[in-house]
C-alpha cells in the first residue's frame, strides 16, 4: 500500500538525490548557505546516510584547513555511506564538482601552522600531493604512560610490549581509518567510491593494517587540569595503524557517530607504517545531532568536555584563507597550583 507517509519518504528521497546530483555551483568566498541535506535511512544491518561535506565541519586540533579550489573555496561535496551486513559490504562515495585542485601543494610555517610533534611526525610541506579520505568515529580508551620522575609522556600501550614502570593515564580516543589515495579530474571534479568489508574495517591503502587511534594528550602531566579541558595544554596524539587483528566491525563506527576528513598527503608515504598529515580540505561530522551545517564547525573542546553548544561558526566561513585549528594551550603549570593530592585525582578522573 502506498500511503501518504510513503509518498513523503519517496519525495524526500528524490529531493535529497536531486540535491546531491546538483551539488553547489562554483562560487566565491562568501558562504552561500547549503541546500545539500543530511539524511539517513538507518538500520544497523542495512542502510545509507548522506552527509553534506564542507570545509571545517569536523577537524582535529592542529589541523590546517585549506581551500579545495581557489575559484570555489567554500565548495560543497557529498559523502554517501551505504552498508549491508548480509553481503558484508560498506561503501563510501565522495562526490563534488569543481571542488579540488589536482596534485595539491601547501607550505606551512613552523610556529604558525606547523608544530613538530614527536608523537605525530609529519612533513612540514606537501608538494604535488594526493588526497586521502578518512572515516572517523569515537573509540574506546587508550592508556598513555608518563615518566614518574619528569611526568613527561613516554608513549601509549601500543608502543610497549609490556606495561612500563610508569604512570598510566587513560584517555578517550577517536578511531580513524583511511581509504585509498585519489586525484580529482582536470576540472576539479570528484566521484570516488571505496568499499570496506562490514565485519573488518581496515585501511584501504594498506589492507594489512587496521585503524589508528587519535587523542588529545598532555606532553607533561603538570600541563593538564583534570577538571578543565580548556585550561590544559594538550597536543594531538596519533598511533600508528593498529595490527590487522585489531580491526573492528563496521558497527563500531556506525553506532558512535561519524566524522569524515579529506587530507592532503605527500606523493609518497613519509613513514612506515604510514601516518597522515594535518593538512585537509573538506570534512563532514554527524558526531552530534544531525550533520554539522555549512559554515559551522564541531567544537572539539566542547565535545571532549561535554559542553554545549557543540558547534561554533567556522572562523574561515566567509574567506578563502587557510584556517589553523589550535589545540588548547595555556602553559599553566598545574603542579604548582594544586595540592599534593592532585596527581592522585588526575589518575582517577
Amino acid at each position: 500500500m502506498f500511503g501518504p507517509n510513503h509518498k513523503a519518504r519517496a519525495l524526500g528521497c528524490i529531493g535529497a538525490a536531486a540535491t546531491i546530483i546538483s551539488l553547489a555551483s562554483p562560487s566565491g568566498a562568501h558562504n552561500q548557505g547549503s541546500l545539500n541535506k543530511p539524511f539517513a535511512k538507518f538500520d544497523m544491518e542495512k542502510g545509507f546516510m548522506n552527509l553534506p561535506t564542507y570545509q571545517g565541519a569536523g577537524i582535529p586540533f592542529e589541523l590546517t584547513v585549506i581551500p579545495g579550489k581557489q575559484d570555489n573555496c567554500n565548495g560543497e561535496m557529498s559523502t554517501t555511506i551505504s552498508w549491508n551486513e548480509k553481503t558484508n559490504k560498506v561503501k563510501v562515495r565522495l562526490r563534488g564538482k569543481n571542488v579540488l585542485e589536482p596534485n595539491p601543494s601547501f607550505d606551512r610555517t613552523e610556529g604558525v601552522n606547523y608544530f613538530p610533534n614527536e608523537f605525530w611526525p609529519e612533513p612540514e610541506d606537501v608538494v604535488n600531493g594526493r588526497y586521502q579520505y578518512w572515516m572517523i568515529s569515537p573509540g574506546g580508551t587508550i592508556t598513555l604512560y608518563y615518566d614518574p620522575q619528569t611526568l613527561d609522556l613516554l608513549g601509549s600501550e601500543w608502543d610497549f610490549e609490556t606495561p612500563p614502570p610508569a604512570i598510566p593515564i587513560t584517555l578517550p580516543t577517536i578511531k580513524v581509518v583511511s581509504m585509498d589515495f585519489f586525484q580529482p579530474n582536470g576540472s576539479g571534479d570528484v566521484d570516488e567510491t571505496w568499499e570496506f568489508d562490514y565485519d573488518k574495517i581496515v585501511k584501504l591503502d594498506q589492507p594489512t593494517m587496521a585503524h589508528h587511534l587519535f587523542t588529545a594528550a598532555p606532553g607533561n602531566l603538570c600541563l593538564v587540569n583534570p577538571f578543565r579541558f580548556d585550561l590544559s595544554t594538550l597536543r594531538p596524539y596519533l598511533t600508528y595503524p593498529l595490527p590487522e587483528n585489531e580491526a573492528v566491525n563496521f558497527r563500531e563506527f556506525l553506532e558512535s557517530g561519524f566524522i569524515f576528513d579529506l587530507t592532503v598527503e605527500p606523493a609518497e608515504y613519509y613513514t612506515d607504517p604510514p601516518l597522515t598529515t594535518q593538512i585537509a580540505t573538506y570534512s563532514a561530522a554527524a558526531l552530534t545531532g544531525g550533520a554539522v551545517p555549512k559554515g559551522w564547525q564541531l567544537d572539539l573542546a566542547a565535545v571532549f568536555g561535554n559542553q554545549a553548544p557543540p558547534i561554533v561558526p567556522y572562523p574561515s566561513r566567509d574567506s578563502c584563507d587557510p584556517y589553523f585549528y589550535p589545540a588548547p594551550k595555556t602553559n599553566i603549570d598545574w603542579c604548582a597550583q594544586m595540592p599534593a593530592s592532585m596527581p592522585q585525582a588526575m589518575m582517577t578522573n
Binding site: 539524511f39 561519524f258 545531532g289 544531525g290
Partner: peptide, 13 residues
C-alpha cells in the same frame, strides 16, 4: 528505517 533531516541525530535506531 527512517529518514532524518535537520538536527535529528543521523545515527538513530
Amino acid at each position: 528505517p527512517r529518514i532524518n533531516t535537520g538536527s535529528n541525530n543521523l545515527h538513530l535506531s
